[in-house]
Design a protein around this nucleic acid. Structure first.
Lengths: 346, 346
DNA sequence: TCTGGCACTCTTGTGGTTAGAGTGCTAAGA
DNA sequence: TCTTAGCACTCTAACCACAAGAGTGCCAGA
């Protein structure tokens, strides 16, 4: 029952998936007999297919159609049967050149996203670097003329700049703020924001007793700045509309769910977040992602790194019927290129 | 030939548009006879409709369907026949309360956008305040440790903060930069960015001859900051997917064009830009917008103001068959509320 | 100028038919 | 025991015909 799947059954599955991905049509026994190179009659192949169907690896839309892979079938294919098609050197160079050098972080994310979507003809998604994983480079305070507000400027490792306006209990002079900034820079520059937050939490108690006024102010202000409000990192989507061209998604209802998922962001972010810890390319096939909107989609995602630390994730979203052999290496290389481009901004 | 349209023809048109907007079905003569309150037989009404059809005000999809308004018909309706339905006070208050007070500009734009889409069940678009129309409040320079780059922080009237990193020919000390900032603040604070740019242009020449070193530096730097790169203001879209529910847009091809237009931004921005100069609510019906993607859509747009100066535009995009009587006042009031919320941030 | 009547047109939905594709099963062959 | 040929069966897709329903256009009479 839980017997091994025979070598030739796998071979047939491979041919079937490849053909289905290419043609978009259910694959019949005749075609498999011709294309698999196995020298078996269609009848034999039908027997094997019945077996694969019993195991839930392929399915037929109706009696007189051929077979198509199920989620489980794609999974098997991706895990065991896939022969990757590395993008050729020229293509990689072309991608590389599209990351315009001087550009700021936002632009780089945007480029990566539209490159992914442009080259795969599916949707590209690039999550912004997780704020709490980036490293503080510099913090400055700017008194805003007119009231008790202070503009805080946080510069993180790749010259990403973040602003926040905080309200202060009283008015601070420029030199006071300068002192505070100096203190915080000395204490925290080079640390990642996550670490800073935990240090701050433990110092909040100490502050009242052992610290001088200035340091107390510094800690309180820093707390306001770094107490990220559950910091929902954003992401950039490109080529959403490419998904409209796929027959399997052409029901308006499905598309709507999908686009809603993109704009709600929550589920998508949750999914991408899982890949942050993953080090390598991840593939979610169909319902594997666990979100209804992505039921008929596959997501190929890879983390990208700044200073050898995975800080964000980029992905391609398309129909389950996608050319995994081409897309997976492409996502991989794009992640590396994006990382390289970000690091070059040092 | 170019005779006036009779009173009762207009009355019928009004009934027709209202019915069509409500039901989404072509309107026949029987229904008009019943609902118009004119006490005419269907046959008479048919005569009148033939007349309106000759004038291009209504059309019939095919012989045995009723009539639907053409673009010209909607235009006539909106310009001359529309009785506005002001949103009731409770609804306005509810909207008002949704602009969370402390929020930053981005959030306010986002709220406005989703309010528009939520309440109209169509797509909401809010253009960000045009950078060159906002007023400079404060400018500061921050030397970035390590190289010749300088972070420039520009605070404009509603505490919108913009960052830009510029490369400088040599390294400047903090006090030098402070001097430069002081000079620029004194010279330019309170002016709008557009004015600043023109002053800068004329001073570039003078700089070489009459100014001291510091002022020269200041002007050159400011030039780098304010030489906006054709400043493509952004916008926020919400509820795109609502548009999928409308029967007249349910062809995937149409939807694709529409969504592409949203993400390309160019055409949409161009359209919104026209409304910036308009002072009042603008309605583009169907092909009037001049962009193919919006052929079957209407756009109701209104500018919003900061410090009594129109700086941005918000809009609702939906099918031509929309409840203009409800949407127009709603867009109007939302623009005013957004302006108020932005001004409150002073 | 308005209206009733009537023929005409066009859409929509239904049922029936056919061709094509591909399967499942059975029985025979290696 | 595995493979294969043959055949009946099922399901889809496309096409046609037909009828019902809606609404028009036009004509003749009030």
């Amino acid at each position: 029952m839980t017997q091994e799947i025979s070598e030739r059954a796998l071979r047939l599955l491979k041919t079937l998936v490849e053909s289905y991905v290419r043609e978009g049509q259910p694959v019949g026994s005749r075609m498999l007999a011709r294309d698999s190179g196995l020298d078996l009659s269609p009848a034999t192949i039908r027997n094997i297919m019945t077996d694969l169907e019993d195991r839930g690896i392929v399915a037929s839309p109706h009696t007189s159609a051929g077979r198509i892979p199920t989620t489980k079938g794609y999974r098997l294919f991706v895990d065991a049967l896939l022969t990757m098609r590395q993008p050729d050197q020229a293509e990689v160079m072309r991608l590389k050149s599209q990351f315009s050098l001087g550009a700021d972080v936002e632009h780089l994310l945007g480029s990566a996203s539209s490159m992914l979507s442009g080259i795969t003809r599916m949707a590209g998604v690039v999550m912004a670097p997780r704020r709490e994983l980036t490293v503080l480079r510099q913090i400055e305070f700017l008194p805003l003329s007119g009231d008790n507000r202070v503009l805080v400027i946080v510069v993180t490792n790749q010259y990403q700049v973040q602003n926040r306006i905080i309200n202060t209990p009283r008015r601070y002079s420029e030199s006071e703020l300068q002192q505070v900034a100096n203190y915080l820079n000395a204490a925290f520059a080079g640390k990642d924001l996550h670490a800073i937050r935990s240090v701050l939490l433990s110092e909040m108690d100490a502050a009242r007793t052992t610290m001088n006024d200035m340091m107390q102010t510094a800690v309180t202000m820093a707390e306001k700045v770094f107490a990220a409000p559950a910091d929902e990192a954003g992401y950039v989507v490109a080529g959403q509309t490419n998904l409209m061209d796929f027959a399997e998604l052409s029901s308006v209802e499905k598309l709507r769910q999908l686009f809603d998922a993109f704009s709600q962001k929550r589920d998508m972010l949750h999914l991408l977040d899982q890949c942050l810890r993953a080090e390598t390319v991840q593939v979610f096939i169909g319902a594997e992602s666990g979100y209804k909107a992505f039921d008929e989609c596959s997501i190929v995602a890879a983390p990208y790194e700044i200073d050898s630390q995975a800080v964000g994730v980029l992905a391609v979203v398309g129909p389950t019927r996608m050319a995994y052999d081409r897309v997976i290496p492409l996502v991989d290389v794009t992640a590396k290129l994006l990382g390289a481009a970000l690091n070059q901004r040092q």
